[in-house]
């Protein structure tokens, strides 16, 4: 009887112990130059870096309590997934460092794991609940979404969109066409030759610091956040600024005037020359047009 119990305990240990320990990862598979690499991880981190080899390599650690790493692919599509047991009470985060062919399309989904992507030239699509998302390098286009995690895209020239619910969204070095939004987080954009930027919040503040490309357009809309547009003194654009109950301050020319017979609305429309178009609208937030 005791011998049977002992054997059972040993068998259980063989099955369970690997899952209890943290595992080092070092796996690779061939992949096409411009295939899709899809990554899923719940907690920990995911760092994806482009390289010049036609293979995907995964290193890092699989968190204690994780069931296994599922690493499959057909060349054109590679999947990297941390698999968790059905009824795990506590699972440590897994930290994945993934090298992908630089031209890959990268798609990452996490719950709380931070996501970082760099040196990838293909499009990137990143989604996390509470993890932070950062993108560097020069992806062809980007899409990033979080619920509470912050987003920072320093991918100059890439068109794309980034949105969060409560996280801050920062797009740096923009010179293409971008959209950025957050409900309560701040939205900020910098860039010297922005062709189109649509920035939107409900209560978060909006800040734009940079210039428009020739014929560029900037739209900033918020309900109760403030809008600050820091523009070159020589900006040539048509301006259209309104607020229902906030204030408008303008360093580029005329001051705002009341527009509504019934409400406290203010409006400011003027032109500093043909070229771009700048629109800023708020319900109760202040709008400031400042010279850089």
């Amino acid at each position: 009887m005791m011998k049977r119990v002992g054997l059972s305990v040993m068998a259980l240990a063989v099955v369970v112990l690997p899952a209890m320990a943290q595992q080092k990862l070092d796996e690779r598979r061939p992949a096409s130059k411009d295939g899709v690499v899809e990554v899923q991880n719940v907690s920990g981190s995911v760092k994806v870096t482009g390289w010049d080899r036609d293979e995907v390599a995964v290193t890092g650690t699989l968190g204690r309590g994780s069931e296994r790493l599922e690493f499959t692919g057909t060349g054109v599509r590679t999947e990297v997934r941390v698999v968790l047991p059905h009824f795990a009470h506590h699972v440590d985060g897994s930290d994945l460092e993934i090298k992908v062919p630089a031209g890959s399309r990268v798609e990452v989904n996490t719950v709380s794991a931070d996501i970082g992507v760099d040196e990838v030239a293909g499009p990137v699509r990143l989604e996390s609940v509470s993890g932070r998302v950062t993108v560097g390098g020069a992806p062809r286009e980007f899409e990033a979404k979080t619920v509470s995690g912050g987003i920072e895209i320093a991918a100059a020239g890439a068109p794309g969109r980034a949105s969060s619910v409560s996280g801050a969204v920062a797009l740096k070095g923009v010179n293409g066409s971008v959209e950025a939004s957050s409900v309560s987080g701040a939205v900020s954009v910098t860039g010297d030759a922005v062709s189109r930027a649509e920035l939107q919040t409900t209560s978060g503040d909006i800040r734009f610091e940079g210039g428009l490309a020739s014929g560029g357009r900037l739209d900033a809309k918020t309900v109760s956040g403030s809008v600050v547009l820091l523009l070159p003194a020589a900006t040539a654009a048509d301006f259209d600024v309104t607020t229902f109950s906030g204030n408008i301050t303008n360093e580029f020319g005329p001051q705002a005037k009341r527009t509504s017979e019934y409400g406290p609305g203010k409006e400011l429309s003027f032109s500093t020359g043909a070229g771009g178009r700048i629109v800023a609208k708020s319900f109760s937030g202040d709008v400031r047009l400042q010279k850089r």
């Binding site: 509470s130 619910v165 109760s224 509504s260 019934y262």
Partner: peptide, 30 residues
Amino acid sequence: ATLKVVEDNLAIVDTAVHNMEQALARDPGN
């Protein structure tokens, strides 16, 4: 934590919608 973020932000948008609808009722030609 996530539920709180969602509910807090829903409340923010609901308040914004409410305030703007009230303003629009007062100033329907805006």
